[in-house]
Simulated assay, not measured.
Amino acid sequence: MTSSETRRITDLGTLKAISHPLRMRLYRALFVARTATASQLAEQVDEAVSLVSYHLRKLAAGGLVEEAEPQSADGRERWWQPSSYGFSIHEEDLKDAPELAAASAAFGRTVTEQRAALHARFLDERLTWSEEWRSASISSEWLPRLTAGELAALGRELEAVIRKYDEAARAAEAAGDTEGRENVALHVHGFPYRP
């Protein structure tokens, strides 16, 4: 990753680019892999290399991914990496922009569907994981009564804690500590609702 910052998406083109279901899957796979070729990503998402290359170029045009240093001697391979630690969409960027609001809603639905599918896959496959991993997995729901300010503060604190663990894990892995490490999906939602 070039930047350790989170990229803030404020334009319609980039938001539409990442809202595409395959592009979101590719972005997630690339984020986990850190660097990969279109061929490697095509295997993971079970799509043609040419289609994956096309969608990677669309993500690159939106500034979400970029070319990475080659990881092999084969000069024909084009390596990719995320251009930042992640990205965010802020509500204040959507007001007075109905097209952005609609694209943000489409993006949210895509992400929600993919997250639900990822969790359902874990539930279906949970017995293939060790007892240690099954016990460590988290599935909780809390229903606190908060103000908008408290919810925003809670979100910032959760993000800081998650980033701390992720950065420590990446540093440990870079130092060779790979024993027992697995990719972990952590989905936290916080939104108001009325019963």
Rank of each mutant, 00 (worst) to 15 (best):
M1T: 10
T2C: 04
T2D: 08
E5M: 09
E5H: 13
R8T: 15
R8Y: 09
T10D: 05
T10W: 08
T10Y: 01
T10S: 07
G13A: 15
L15S: 00
L15T: 00
I18C: 05
H20N: 09
H20R: 05
H20L: 02
H20V: 12
P21W: 08
L22T: 02
L22N: 03
R25N: 12
L26S: 00
L26E: 05
L26Y: 03
R28W: 11
A29Q: 10
V32P: 08
A33E: 10
R34T: 03
T35I: 06
A38Y: 02
A38F: 01
S39N: 06
S39W: 05
Q40C: 08
A42M: 09
A42L: 07
E43I: 03
L51R: 07
Y54P: 02
Y54G: 06
Y54M: 09
H55V: 07
H55T: 04
R57I: 06
K58A: 12
L59A: 07
A61R: 15
G63I: 05
L64M: 12
E67H: 15
E69F: 11
G75M: 09
R76I: 07
R76D: 12
W79N: 05
W80Y: 12
P82Q: 03
Y85I: 06
Y85G: 05
I89L: 00
H90C: 07
E92Q: 14
A97C: 11
L100S: 04
L100P: 00
A103Y: 01
A105H: 12
A106E: 12
A106F: 04
G108D: 11
R109K: 15
T110C: 02
E113F: 12
A117H: 14
A117K: 08
L118T: 15
H119F: 15
A120M: 11
R126P: 01
R126D: 04
L127I: 09
E132G: 04
S140C: 10
E141D: 10
P144E: 04
P144Y: 09
L146T: 00
G149Q: 13
L151E: 00
L151K: 02
R156S: 11
R156T: 05
L158C: 11
E159W: 14
E159L: 13
A160N: 14
D166S: 14
E167T: 14
A168H: 13
A169M: 12
A169G: 14
A171R: 08
A171G: 04
E173P: 08
T178M: 10
G180P: 03
G180K: 14
A185Y: 13
L186C: 11
H189W: 12
H189Q: 12
G190H: 00
F191Q: 01
F191E: 01
P192F: 15
Y193G: 03
Y193N: 09
P195T: 10
